[in-house]
Amino acid sequence: MEQQLNYFIQYLEQVRKSSRNTVLSYRRDLEKFLAFLDAQEISDFASVNETTLNAYILMMEQKQFATSTISRNIAALKSFFDYLEHYESFRSNPAARLKAPKIEKKAPEVLTVAEVTKLLEQPAGRNNKELRDKAMLELMYATGIRVSELVSLTVNDINVQAGYIRCSEHGRERIIPIGSVARVSLRQYLKQARPSMLADDNSSILFPNCSGQPMSRQGFWKILKQYAAKAGIASDITPHTLRHSFAAHLLENGADLRSVQEMLGHSDISTTQIYLKMNTGRIRDIYSNTHPRA
């Protein structure tokens, strides 16, 4: 069974072109499922049926796994058994009728404009690290890109003169404009800091870590949390908080939903619409202040 799992992981990487996060999550979830099957003395996937899968889901619920975790496990199981059905000629798919539990969509955490300003002021540019950190924070808020996209950028992905960056994910490419403030920070970083931070002069990495190697998502998260603490931001800030703030602030100031969807790289506009709900109060105030019969 372990070999079949390895073949499935290769399929995700080479055929589906799944993101690294998806591959790692699915492998981790399916390895836990294998351990469950072993405890049930089930030695092959052909012996798995709907009852087996429902028992596994019930076990996760009894252990009080988060709804999002259970949903991801179900997605992994459905994808895996779809693969077995199509590529290993399984006669039936026991996961075909599995349904993920409904996840209540909560409004994303968003910083105020004042909080973002305070955060972006923290790296003062007194050394190479602060120049890099300033450029990263400014770029993330200016474009709303994901942290995985930020740390994967190369010098070939940015055009400071023309004012845009190019992001690619899952075979889709999008062009996002860069504001003037972020461009100033980028120019300063590229000229004064980046050359001396690289371990290899020929490297195309845009934002290396302090060892001159590619920065990890976790590395940027630590940087962000340090500056958030210095800025006195009490909320539990994550890299996605800047992405959420980017979208919410654009819509609050009149940007159209389709443009924000394009910049965020959302394939489904319903994902972007969640930010509109955050502006309901502001829309009500505008109506009250401007409609002649309000």
Rank of each mutant, 00 (worst) to 15 (best):
residue 88 E to Y: 13
residue 177 P to M: 06
residue 33 F to N: 01
residue 266 H to R: 12
residue 280 T to F: 08
residue 116 V to S: 05
residue 129 K to A: 03
residue 257 L to G: 07
residue 130 E to F: 04
residue 224 L to D: 09
residue 87 Y to K: 13
residue 128 N to T: 06
residue 262 E to W: 02
residue 135 A to I: 06
residue 196 S to P: 00
residue 110 V to R: 01
residue 57 I to N: 00
residue 290 T to E: 12
residue 8 F to W: 06
residue 122 Q to S: 05
residue 47 S to R: 11
residue 85 E to N: 12
residue 46 A to Q: 14
residue 205 I to N: 10
residue 258 R to L: 13
residue 147 V to G: 01
residue 204 S to K: 12
residue 42 I to K: 09
residue 216 S to R: 05
residue 3 Q to A: 10
residue 257 L to A: 08
residue 201 D to N: 14
residue 290 T to I: 10
residue 73 N to E: 07
residue 231 A to Q: 07
residue 294 A to S: 15
residue 221 W to G: 03
residue 104 E to M: 11
residue 36 F to D: 05
residue 98 L to W: 03
residue 271 T to F: 08
residue 137 L to V: 06
residue 195 P to H: 05
residue 164 Y to C: 05
residue 139 L to Q: 07
residue 25 S to Y: 10
residue 85 E to D: 11
residue 212 G to A: 04
residue 250 L to A: 06
residue 237 I to Y: 01
residue 24 L to P: 01
residue 222 K to D: 00
residue 171 G to L: 10
residue 6 N to V: 02
residue 192 Q to C: 05
residue 81 F to P: 06
residue 102 K to W: 04
residue 137 L to G: 07
residue 195 P to Y: 03
residue 240 H to E: 08
residue 133 D to A: 08
residue 265 G to K: 10
residue 84 L to S: 11
residue 169 E to T: 13
residue 243 R to N: 05
residue 124 A to S: 14
residue 77 L to D: 06
residue 152 S to F: 06
residue 104 E to S: 11
residue 139 L to A: 08
residue 294 A to Y: 13
residue 210 C to S: 14
residue 141 Y to N: 03
residue 266 H to G: 07
residue 161 Q to E: 14
residue 40 Q to A: 11
residue 139 L to M: 14
residue 252 E to G: 15
residue 31 E to V: 15
residue 233 I to T: 10
residue 101 P to Y: 07
residue 265 G to N: 11
residue 148 S to C: 08
residue 225 K to R: 15
residue 206 L to V: 04
residue 120 L to C: 02
residue 212 G to L: 03
residue 131 L to R: 00
residue 25 S to Q: 10
residue 180 S to N: 15
residue 82 D to T: 12
residue 213 Q to Y: 00
residue 132 R to N: 04
residue 106 K to L: 13
residue 200 D to I: 04
residue 148 S to E: 08
residue 10 Q to N: 15
residue 284 R to D: 12
residue 294 A to M: 13
residue 224 L to G: 09
residue 53 L to P: 05
residue 4 Q to I: 07
residue 203 S to G: 12
residue 8 F to N: 02
residue 212 G to E: 05
residue 5 L to A: 08
residue 164 Y to F: 15
residue 180 S to K: 14
residue 147 V to N: 01
residue 23 V to P: 09
residue 73 N to V: 05
residue 149 E to F: 09
residue 114 A to T: 04
residue 145 I to D: 02
residue 252 E to I: 02
residue 76 A to V: 07
residue 143 T to D: 03
residue 12 L to C: 04
residue 209 N to M: 08
residue 18 S to W: 03
residue 158 I to Y: 09
residue 195 P to G: 06
residue 139 L to F: 06
residue 180 S to M: 13
residue 109 E to V: 13
